[in-house]
Structures are given as C-alpha cells and as structure tokens.
Nucleic acid binder design. Structure first.
Length: 761
DNA sequence: GAGTTTGAAACT
DNA sequence: CAGTTTCAAACTC
C-alpha cells in the first residue's frame, strides 16, 4: 500500500506527522497475526508501499489540536474505494463486492454493533486496506463510543479494546492487528471519523494483486472529521462516495501520487503496520509503523522531527528519552520486499540523515544514523521469535527489492536518498549475540555484512551530538542486544570488497538480513561519497586506530590500504571502539568534519580549528586549509601565511594548478578520443581484411607494431602542437597518420597471407 | 623509492 | 595550556 508516494512525500506538510505520537502508539499485540498479500509469497513481507499490500497495523495519530481538522490521506490507485466511518448513525457496514468496493462504516456512539459483513482488514487488492481482500465478517464489529474506537474483529478481542482504550483521546488510531481492525478516534468525543477508500470505478470487478504496483495505485483516504462544520467532498466515484453524516468542517487532503498536497493544519498521521508484534521489548516506545515513507516535520516550535512510516516486526526500537526517533520507511515497489527500517535521531541543528535499510523479514538488525555522525549505528536485536506467518525460518535466500529513490525530508531540507538496488542476499546464520559478529552474506556479490553483536564497551551515546564510534548501550534488559558501530562508508566498502569473514557460530534465532542503502554523508550526495576516491593509508605504527590515520579519522574502515598491523577493521572492532572512545574523550569533535561553515562575512568554508603551519606558508598540502582548497581564516595560527585572498603567491599557485588541471583534462580527453577512434577503425577494418582464410589481420598488430604506431601518432601530435595547429587539425593529422599505419599493417598482413598461401600451394 | 620536511595528533 | 614526541602524509631528489 502506498501510503505516501515519494513524490508526494516531498509535498507533504511537515506538520503531518508527529513523532511524539509514535510513543503513544499501542504496542502491537503479540498474538497479532501477519496478514499477507494475496499475491505475495509466503516468505515475502508485504512491505510495498506502491503496491497495496497490506494488512497493516494501521495507526493514525493526531494531536488534540489537529482534530479540529479533517484530513484525507489518499494514495492514488486504479481502484478507489471508500471506507468511511462517521458518527451519529448506526453502523451498517456495507461492503460491496470487489467491483463495487465501498466500505461504509458508520459508527454509533452508543452501541456495539455487529456487522454482517466486513473484512479482516480493508483490502487494497480491491478497494482495500489490506491485501487479503474482502472477506466475510464473521465477527462482531464493535465500536467504543467513549473514545471513538471502532473495532473490527472477528473475535471480539478485549486486547484490542484495551489497546484502543490505551490510545485514549489523544491519538487517532486505526489499527489492524492481525484479525482486528481497530479504529480509534482521537479527536474530541463526537467527532466522526471517515476512512475513505475511494473507488475509481474504472475497473470494476478487476481484482488487483498486490504485486502489481503499476496497476494498483490504491487510493486510501482517511478522513477525520473534526468539530467544524464543513465537509468537503472526498474523491471517489459517486457510488463510492464517503458518507459522512455529521461532518461539519471537513478538510480533505488527498495525498496521492504525483498529486500536490497542501495542508496547513497540524494534523499528523502515523500509519503503522505490524507484521509481527512479537519481540517488542518493554522499553519499546516507538510503535511499529507501516512501510511507507519518511515524513518529516519541522515546525517553529519543535525541533526537527521525523515521522516515519515503516514496518516493524518483532523488533525493538531504540528509545531515546526526549528525542524523537523515527523509523524510516522505504518505498518498496516489488512484492518481494524486505522491510526497510531506519532510525534517525534528530534534535540537532545539523543535517540529518536517515539510514534506510531493507531489513529481513525478521529484522534483528537495526541501523541508526545519528546526525552529524559519519557512522551508522547498527543495533542487533535478538531474534527471539520464530518467523511470522509464512516466513520460513532459518537461512534462506530472499530477494530484496530494488529500492527506489525516496525523498527524505529532514526538517527544512528535503533530500532525495538514492537507494541502491538491493541485491539478493543469502542469509547466513549469524553469530550468537554473545559472540563477536553477525554475518550476512549475499549470494550475488559475495558480500558479508558483519556486525559485532557483542555487548561492547559501554559508551553512552549522546544523541544530540553523538560522535562517531559511540556505542549504543544495549537496551535495558536486553542482554543479547548490542550495537556495532559501522562507518557510513562501511556499506560501500562491504559492497566493494569481497568477503569480510568472521567466525560465526550458532546463531539459532532467525537471522536478520540487511542490505544497506547508500546514504548521503555529511551532506554529500551518495555519488559523492561513494565515488570519492580515498587514498589508502600507509600507517605502520598507529594500527590505524589514531587520527593520524585518515581512514580512521574519516570514520572509515581501512580498505585496500597499505597499512601494517591494521586494527581499523571489523576483526578488531573492540579495539577500534576503544580507540574511538579514546579519541572522543580527548576531543569530542574529533570525528567531525574539519571544514565547516565559517562566520558571517567570512568564507563559506573554513577550517574548524585553523592550521598551525610554520614553514609551509600554508601553500602546501601540509596545510590543512590549503589542502582543503580554502583560505586560512582568523582562527588559524599559522606563521608566514600566504594562503589568503590577495596573496600573489597563492594566485600564482592556483593559476598554475588550474593550468595543469586543464592540461591533464585535455590530455585525458584526447587519449580517450583517440583510443576510441582506433578501436573503431580496427573494428571496421577487421571484417574487410579478415575475409578468407589465414591469420586475422589484427594478429599482426603485435606489441611492437602497436608501439610503433603510437609513436607515429605521437609524433604527429607533437608536430601539430609545435606548429600550434588547432585541435581539430591535430586530430585530423593524427588520424591520417593512423590510417597510414593501418594501411601498412594491412599491407603487411596481406603480404604475409600471400606468402603463406604461396607456401601452402 | 628513499630520504626529508611538515604539521597534526598524541603525549607529558 | 605549552612543550615535546610521534606519526603519516607531502614533498624532494
């Protein structure tokens, strides 16, 4: 189910989500069953956001103030249907056939009504919320008038009722827990709720499958009717129009794919999906949310807050008091998806990055990206439960979806996070959590993701300024929960490098699968971070565990380096963590970028500490300012600095450097072009001269011939340069020469062939 | 490639 | 905080 499309996500009002409400989400019930899409594999997790998968644990939150307004949360789809819940009337739950999928729930504030027909969940397969499709309702359909809780349940569950009650007045919850669809109105008493799933009617009777993302752009509307006296029409076919009886002022906001959305009211939605509610630790304060998107709000009152739509299974989430934790979703177009989970910790003024991690069906690995940190924090969660519905346990090969670029909104900055194409991964039994690492191996790329799960030295995280390398403390009571500190580049390194092997023994629980998305790093785009060449270090004495080592200082593991006795790797994660801690003790800013934004009036970029050069004049790469191609600033303590704006030495140097760079570029371009032309000529001439029997002509292009040819070409190039010929003319001359060379080669080949033929004759 | 220079990091 | 040492990169030959 595409709750919010990426395009739309960027258009969503920041106020649409409230992370605070996350903590108010009732925890999913342990016995909740996983409802899967009809079209989904048994092993697949209905994580699609484009496709109407669903069976979600759907939770809508709204703060009290926002209940005055009504919103419609809509995702476009080929089949629209209407699911409306309104107060003030009896509850005839009318669910038509698939061709006329119109759900109309009218709540009664005073009674519990048994519906005659409904669904286990609202199916998106055909105007649904869940993928199960329309089914007979054999169970009571209850409505709690006190807090506008509407419970659809085959078996009237007190648990659901309690969960609904626990939601209380503040949050608005539409919750599907296994067989239950719990709708809780969080608004004021008497305020109707309309859940609308408009039906386009364009394809009546056509049942869509969850796997068809294109054809299923389900419109899903959730409309809460506030206390105002305005009702706006909700989209949908006339026959499927939502019925709202007491809507006074209804503000319908359609959130549809490629549909601009405007909203001003501070209503906030969190849509929650629960696949497996097991394993939620008592400390869990973040409710599972549906696979969807990251919605971020940034208001003047509150710091950056990130609302995330994602999916959790039996995973505990890190709770940080006073901080907002958002679980990032990933738009997953394919039905064979892996859940994506991300934890972003906000609260600092700096840029925030969210780590999107397609997770296994049983994600016992969580990744936390801390703003300002170049490290990814991976939390390993003990998989204590068996696979949920239909998910085979044990090592398995699962295909992971190709993730689409998604828009992540981080406060005022919205970033498009390119998610690399996930790869089919083969899950390898990870290590016991008491041992050193967890191993995840991919079959396609032979990669292993190793994350130590050992309770590491307890370094208390500072989430407002968590330095890289900080180890997240295990969750209270979670003895088997550990955190590994993984550099941001770790992902890339692992993807690039072959095996990183650690001994792995008996991890009996269902292992987690993790793929990682390439993420923006320190404001750099993915391409910048991944394509940026990093010099291999040559450390010999520091074990690459001191800031002398550039790899370590950059928060990277050593990879393809020339270092000796390197400890900057996963095999020495413990030592590495200690070293990180030591560095941070010494300087909490040790891992922060040295080049930051300068004061007002100064250059945009400047060294955070300034240089201390004595002899280089700050015009050599010894100087960190010069190396970063920035000028020295007032905070530098350098002597004889020549690295300032008006410095003639600097200008000369820069001019020379520019000239050299241009020259290199031109040479490279010329080489490439010439090489291409040569290849092209060879390709074209080969068939002509290769006709007939005998040796193919290109076999005559021996190394010696090649060198001679190149010398000829270079000679022509030199001549052209000396005579100051234009580039076009130079190229012409060179090509001409190349043609001559080729002719000589062909002639020689022909001669040889003739000689050979005469000999044979 | 070896040796030197340099300045940041680490240490006292 | 200042002085010294260590270290690895930058640079020179």
């Amino acid at each position: 189910m595409d709750v919010v499309s990426p395009e739309l996500n960027s258009l969503l009002p920041d106020e649409i989500m409230d992370t605070e409400a996350i903590e108010d989400v009732p925890h999913s019930q342990p016995e909740a069953t996983t409802v899967q899409s009809e079209a989904s594999d048994d092993t697949s997790v209905p994580m699609e956001t484009d496709t109407p998968v669903a069976s979600e644990h759907l939770s809508l939150f709204s703060d009290a103030a926002s209940t005055e307004h009504t919103r419609a949360l809509t995702t476009s789809t080929a089949t629209d249907c209407t699911f409306s819940i309104s107060s003030g009337s009896q509850i005839p739950i009318s669910i038509s056939s698939s061709s006329s999928p119109h759900l109309n729930f009218k709540s009664v504030l005073t009674a519990t009504t048994t519906a005659t027909k409904t669904t286990d969940s609202v199916s998106v397969t055909d105007c649904t919320v869940s993928t199960i499709g329309l089914q007979k309702l054999t169970a009571p359909f209850t409505i709690s008038p006190a807090n506008h809780q509407i419970i659809l349940n085959k078996v009237a569950s007190s648990q659901a009722t309690e969960a609904a009650k626990s939601a209380g007045a503040p949050p608005q919850v539409i919750k599907h827990e296994g067989q239950k669809l719990l709708v809780t109105a969080i608004g004021k008493p008497g305020q109707p709720i309309v859940l609308q799933l408009p039906h386009t009617g364009g394809k009546p009777g056509v049942s869509q499958t969850s796997g068809d993302a294109k054809s299923q752009a389900p419109q899903f509307k959730v409309v809460t009717i506030g206390g105002r006296s305005e009702l706006k029409q909700v989209m949908g076919s006339p026959g499927n129009q939502v019925t709202t009886l007491q809507a006074q002022q209804l503000k319908a906001v359609q959130i549809a794919k490629k549909t601009p959305v405007s909203s001003t009211a501070p209503i906030k939605f969190i849509i929650t999906k629960t696949v497996s509610s097991k394993g939620l630790s008592p400390q869990t304060t973040v409710s599972p949310v549906i696979a969807g998107r990251v919605l971020t709000q940034n208001s003047a009152v509150m710091p950056q807050r990130t609302i995330t739509l994602t999916e959790t299974h039996n995973t505990s989430l890190q709770s940080i008091p006073g901080k907002k934790i958002a679980i990032s979703p990933l738009k997953t177009p394919s039905k064979n998806l892996k859940p994506v989970q991300s934890v972003a910790v906000g609260g600092v003024a700096g840029s925030q990055f969210k780590t999107i991690i397609p997770l296994a069906h049983q994600p016992n690995v969580q990744q936390i990206q801390v703003p300002g940190s170049r490290f990814h924090y991976v939390r390993l969660v003990t998989a204590t439960t068996a696979s949920s519905s239909g998910q085979p346990s044990g090592p398995s090969t699962s295909s992971i979806q190709t993730a689409k670029p998604m828009v992540v909104s981080t406060g005022a900055v919205r970033m498009s996070v390119p998610i690399v194409q996930a790869q089919t991964m083969k899950q390898v039994a990870p290590k016991p959590l008491t041992s050193a690492a967890q191993v995840v191996t991919t079959t396609q790329t032979q990669q292993r993701l190793i994350m130590p799960a050992t309770p590491l030295p307890q370094i208390q995280p500072n989430f407002t300024n968590l330095p890289p390398g900080t180890v997240l403390a295990p969750a209270p009571g979670g003895g088997n929960v550990g955190y590994a500190v993984v550099p941001a580049q770790y992902v890339t390194q692992l993807q690039q490098s072959p095996f990183v092997t650690l001994a792995s023994t008996g991890f009996t629980a269902a292992p987690g699968i993790q793929t990682q998305a390439r993420l923006p790093l320190n404001g750099l785009s993915t391409a910048e971070t991944t394509s940026r060449p990093r010099k291999p270090c040559n450390c010999t004495k520091s074990q690459c565990l001191k800031l002398y080592c550039d790899c370590f200082a950059n928060g990277e593991f050593c990879n393809n380096c020339n270092c000796n006795n390197c400890f900057n790797n996963l095999e020495h994660e413990t030592e590495r963590l200690k070293a990180i801690k030591t560095c941070l003790d010494r300087n909490p800013e040790a891992f922060k970028p040295k080049i930051g934004k300068g004061k007002e009036g100064e250059s945009d970029r400047r060294h955070s500490k300034g240089c201390n050069c004595k002899r280089s004049g700050c015009l050599k790469n010894y100087c960190e300012c010069y190396e970063a191609k920035i000028m020295c600033s007032s905070i530098c303590k350098c002597n004889g600095c020549k690295n300032f704006e008006e410095s003639p030495e600097r200008k000369t140097l820069m001019h020379l450097a520019d000239a050299a760079e241009v020259r290199v570029q031109q040479q490279t371009a010329a080489k490439t072009k010439l090489s291409s032309q040569i290849s092209d000529l060879l390709m074209r001439t080969t068939p002509v001269i290769s006709s007939g029997s005998g040796r193919l002509p290109y076999t005559f292009v021996t190394k010696e011939v090649l060198e001679a040819t190149c010398e000829c070409l270079l000679e022509q190039a030199k001549k052209a340069e000396q005579t100051h010929q234009p580039q076009a003319e130079a190229e012409r001359v060179i090509l001409e020469e190349f043609g001559h060379c080729l002719m000589r080669i062909i002639s020689s080949a022909g001669k040889a062939k003739a000689d050979c033929a005469s000999i044979n004759c």
